[in-house]
Computed example of a mutant assay.
Amino acid sequence: MGRKLKSALFSTLMLSGFFFLSGVIEGSVGGFSIVVLFFAAVGNFLYGIPVSFLSDILTRKLMKLRFIVAGFIHILFGFLTAFVIEGLGVFAGICSLLFFLFEELQRKNRSQHKVKRKTIFINGIITISLFSLGIYGLWHSMGTNSEKETNQIYLIPSGYEGSIVVYYDVSKEPPLKKEGKFSVIPVKVEKLEALADTDIEQYGITLTSTPMNDEGATINDKYYYVDETGKRTEIDQYCTSYGSNGSFSADDEKEIQYRTLQITKTNCSEQFYLNGKDIYYTQMDEVHDYWRNKISEEN
Rank of each mutant, 00 (worst) to 15 (best):
V170N: 03
Q112Y: 13
V90P: 03
D289H: 09
L155H: 05
G124N: 01
V24G: 09
G78S: 03
V29K: 05
C268I: 01
N293I: 11
N151T: 09
L54E: 09
F248K: 01
G48S: 00
G216N: 05
A82L: 08
Y47M: 12
E173V: 03
I25H: 07
V69H: 04
R60W: 09
A8N: 05
L98Y: 11
S96T: 11
R107A: 12
M14R: 06
S16R: 05
F131N: 08
M1R: 12
S269Q: 00
I279M: 08
F91P: 08
M1F: 09
F121M: 07
K6E: 11
S269A: 00
Y290A: 07
S146I: 14
S111K: 09
T59N: 04
Y167V: 01
S241E: 11
I57F: 13
F53L: 14
L88M: 14
V24D: 06
R60S: 13
K114S: 09
K6Q: 11
S209D: 06
D197H: 14
D289A: 15
Y154D: 00
V189P: 04
N109D: 08
S141H: 13
P157R: 07
E286W: 11
G71H: 02
S249E: 13
S7D: 05
F77D: 03
E234R: 04
Y258V: 05
L46T: 07
H140L: 15
V226C: 08
A92P: 07
G134A: 02
Q112W: 08
Y168A: 03
P186W: 03
L192I: 06
G48Q: 06
K191G: 04
T218K: 15
Y168G: 04
T260S: 05
Q257W: 13
G243N: 00
P157D: 01
S244K: 14
I128F: 03
I263H: 03
N299L: 15
W139I: 14
T260W: 04
D278S: 14
K148I: 08
L130S: 09
D251H: 11
Y242A: 12
F77E: 06
I68M: 10
D56C: 00
Y242W: 12
H74I: 07
L98P: 09
S55N: 04
F39T: 12
S141F: 12
L176F: 00
V165C: 08
P174K: 07
L105F: 15
L58K: 10
G137H: 15
N299F: 14
E161G: 01
T282H: 10
L207D: 06
F19A: 01
S249D: 12
K178F: 10
E149K: 14
L15A: 08
I263F: 05
T260H: 05
K222S: 09
Q237M: 13
I263Q: 02
R292L: 09
F121K: 06
F10M: 10
E86Y: 10
G137Q: 15
R259Y: 10
Y281K: 12
T264L: 01
N145Q: 13
G180M: 00
F67H: 06
N109H: 12
N267S: 14
T264F: 03
N220W: 07
T12A: 00
P50K: 07
